[in-house]
Each structure stands twice: as C-alpha cells, then as structure tokens.
Amino acid sequence: MIINNLKLIREKKKISQSELAALLEVSRQTINGIEKNKYNPSLQLALKIAYYLNTPLEDIFQWQ
C-alpha cells in the first residue's frame, strides 16, 4: 500500500487542489482522489507532483 503526504505538503505550501490540478493538467477530482488514497498516481504524474511541489518524491509517497 502506498501512503501519501500530498495533502499535508500541498497545504503547507499554501497551494489549493485546483491550483495544483491546473499546474499538472489534471482535474481537481484527480488530486482529491490521490489525497484520499482512492487510487495511486502513475509514475509520470507522481514525478510531476514532486517537481511542482519542489519536494522529493519519497517525501510525498511512501510504501507501507
């Protein structure tokens, strides 16, 4: 199972779901689904999230 800290990191950086979704060219619902662990992002999307949040990938997504 993958645990993610996306919501915590996104809120710490004061970025809304809508703003992050626009940067990543995905829907706000996609961001919401990832934050709620409804599904895991593709590797490409995970890397883009880490890039736009300027945060190491392993700080956002962790195996458990």
Rank of each mutant, 00 (worst) to 15 (best):
S42W: 04
L8Y: 10
L8R: 14
L53Q: 02
K48P: 01
K36F: 08
A50T: 04
L6Y: 00
R28N: 13
R28P: 15
E11K: 09
L23F: 13
I60T: 02
R28S: 13
N32M: 15
V26N: 02
Y39R: 10
I34N: 00
R10M: 08
N54C: 08
I60N: 00
S18K: 14
K12I: 11
F61G: 01
V26H: 03
L53D: 00
S16H: 05
S42L: 04
I3G: 07
N4K: 02
I60A: 02
K7P: 04
N40F: 13
A21E: 03
S27Y: 03
I15P: 00
L23C: 08
Q62M: 09
I3D: 05
P41W: 03
P41L: 07
L47Q: 13
A46T: 04
K13P: 00
Q64E: 15
I3Y: 07
I9H: 07
I9E: 05
S16R: 08
N4F: 02
G33C: 11
M1L: 15
L45G: 02
L57D: 02
L23D: 09
Q44F: 10
T30V: 15
M1V: 10
Q29A: 14
P41E: 01
V26E: 04
Q64I: 09
N32H: 13
Q17F: 04
S18W: 15
K13E: 08
K12L: 13
W63Q: 04
N4A: 03
L23P: 03
N54W: 08
S27N: 08
A50F: 02
E19A: 13
K12C: 08
L20C: 02
S18T: 13
I34V: 05
Q62W: 06
I9N: 04
A46V: 05
A22C: 08
S16G: 09
N37Y: 06
S16Q: 06
L53R: 00
L20D: 00
R10L: 05
K38S: 13
I31E: 02
Y39M: 09
Q17G: 05
I49G: 00
R28G: 09
I31D: 00
I60W: 02
N5M: 06
K7H: 08
A21F: 00
E58A: 10
E25S: 12
T30H: 09
W63T: 04
R10Q: 01
E11T: 12
L20S: 00
I3E: 08
D59W: 10
K12G: 13
N54P: 00
A22G: 11
K13A: 12
K38H: 15
I15K: 06
T30N: 05
N5L: 04
I9R: 03
K13L: 13
Q17E: 06
W63S: 04
Y52F: 14
L8S: 13
A50Q: 04
I9A: 07
N54S: 14
L45I: 08
N4V: 03
L6H: 02
A22P: 02
I9S: 04
L47M: 14
S16A: 07
R10A: 02
Y51A: 10
N32R: 14
